[in-house]
C-alpha cells in the first residue's frame, strides 16, 4: 500500500503487547478484517499495513481493548 497515499501519509500497523493481552477477544469482533483468534482465544494480527479506509476500525479496536494491549504504530 505504501506509495499509494498522498505525500506525508504513513501506513499504520496494529501491534499487540502479549504481556498485557488477556485474550478477551473483543478486538477480533471489532476488526475481523485483520484480527482472528487462535485456538486459545488470543488475537492473531495480519502482518500487513492497514489501508486508510480501515484505519478507523483499527483505532476502534485499539480503543476498546480492556487491557490497553493494542496500539497503532506507524
Amino acid at each position: 500500500m505504501r506509495g499509494l497515499h498522498g505525500k506525508g501519509d504513513v501506513d499504520v500497523r496494529l501491534r499487540c503487547n502479549p504481556i498485557e493481552c488477556d485474550g478477551h477477544g473483543l478486538c477480533a469482533e471489532l476488526f475481523p478484517e485483520r484480527i482472528r483468534l487462535d485456538d486459545w482465544g488470543y488475537p492473531v494480527i495480519a502482518d500487513e499495513p492497514i489501508p486508510r479506509d480501515l484505519e478507523q476500525h483499527a483505532r476502534r479496536a485499539a480503543d476498546a481493548c480492556p487491557t490497553l494491549a493494542l496500539s497503532l504504530e506507524p
Binding site: P18, I19, C21, W40
Partner: peptide, 12 residues
C-alpha cells in the same frame, strides 16, 4: 507465563 500464545501454545 506472561504471554497467552506462549503459555498456552508451548504447553499444548
Amino acid at each position: 507465563g506472561q504471554c497467552g500464545p506462549c503459555v498456552h501454545g508451548s504447553s499444548a
